[in-house]
């Protein structure tokens, strides 16, 4: 080491250009996303081969992935912000459940117009996220505990509204739910389009705004971010507000998709969202990952579900088993990557 550091500004054998191709690939931050994308592609091609006589080749099967998982994508995008910043949000599923109850009750029982209820529901979700972020930052409490409290709180509020499920027969809701955007090869629902717009906005925010870069910085090293003079508190609170907003929006999409409010809707969906984010290649410790990876994470989870449906003989619990196996595999990949960086 001592004899070779004539020019210390040149890292020794550690620049991308000097390393072997394999090491380069392993060191690349985009690797997990690429792996997930490749996995999705491989699964899809397998599906094409195996179920070609059962209609899997229809482009609509692909588009249905977005239609059936739009709400999960939105929730996972919110979770991506939180996990990227090094935090965690366990209240996602409860906020989704609460939003379905809240809108159903407002529209059906109170007769309020959907146009008024939607911004109200989004506001409640964002405010909930803001409160959790505020508590996490100002009282320096673990996000795990604070959002766990949020989980119980919102689930409890569902039951305060009603213990029974409320089905929605409002005409504006059902017309929205049935609206289709024709694409030539098939169609997308409103929910799918909203989800894709949310994804695009999130991508822009994370990569092209100062706020987005602060999220990465905090996830990379919180103490450094503070000493570099970045406004930490605001960023942290904003991250949970984004997550709360996304959860509420996911709740609205879920309500459109299922057309009812139920106090037990979306129980445990925060875990699906977190799984999608991790399978999408975002490090649970924060600071590394891409929101596009989250898209592939959601698509992989969705594709597992539809493959199992096409298989026909498997119980739907196999979805969970496959998710578990994948999650395990991806965490091991992440571990291998971070271990490499430390050596």
């Amino acid at each position: 080491m001592s004899a070779t550091t004539k020019t210390p500004t040149v890292p020794e054998g550690r620049t991308a250009s000097q390393a072997s191709p394999v090491a380069r690939l392993l060191g690349d931050r985009r690797l997990p996303v690429l792996v997930t994308a490749a996995l999705f592609l491989a699964m899809y091609i397998t599906g094409l081969g195996r179920y070609q006589n059962y209609g899997f080749t229809e482009p609509q099967v692909f588009l249905n992935l977005f239609i059936d998982n739009g709400y999960l994508l939105v929730a996972a995008v919110g979770a991506t912000f939180v996990i990227m910043s090094g935090g965690i949000d366990l209240s996602v599923g409860s906020v989704i459940g609460f939003t379905t109850m809240f809108t159903a009750w407002m529209v059906e029982r109170q007769g309020l117009p959907l146009l008024l209820v939607v911004p109200l529901a989004l506001g409640v979700g964002a405010f909930g996220g803001f409160l959790m972020g505020y508590v996490i930052h100002n009282f320096e409490i673990q996000p795990f505990i604070v959002t766990l409290a949020g989980l119980f709180l919102f689930r409890g509020l569902c039951l305060v509204i009603s213990k029974e499920s409320i089905s929605i027969s409002d005409s504006s809701v059902s017309s929205l739910a049935q609206a289709q955007a024709q694409l030539g090869i098939g169609f997308l629902s409103i929910g799918a389009i909203v989800a894709l717009v949310v994804l695009a906005v999130a991508f822009y925010v994370l990569h092209y705004t100062r706020f987005g870069r602060r999220v990465y910085a905090i996830g990379g090293n919180e103490q450094s971010a503070l000493l570099m003079g970045l406004p930490m508190g605001g960023t942290k609170i904003a991250v949970y507000t984004v997550s709360g907003f996304c959860s509420a929006l996911a709740g609205l999409l879920f309500m459109l998709y299922i057309q009812s409010g139920d106090p037990l809707h979306a129980v445990g969906m925060e875990l699906d969202a977190i799984a999608a984010v991790v399978i999408g290649g975002t490090l649970l410790t924060g600071g590394s990952g891409y929101v596009l990876g989250t898209l592939f994470g959601v698509l992989v989870l969705g594709l597992i579900k539809s493959l199992i449906q096409f298989e026909g003989t498997l119980s739907s619990w196999w979805t969970k088993i496959a998710t578990g196996v994948l999650l395990c595999a991806f965490i091991l990949i992440q571990r291998a990557m971070t271990a490499r960086k430390q050596t």
Partner: peptide
């Protein structure tokens, strides 16, 4: 006190990009 996950350029400029 920098963020190892970001690029050198970003570490130089973050907060005033």
């Amino acid at each position: 006190n920098l963020c190892p996950n970001l690029s050198v350029a970003e570490n130089i400029f973050i907060g005033r990009e």
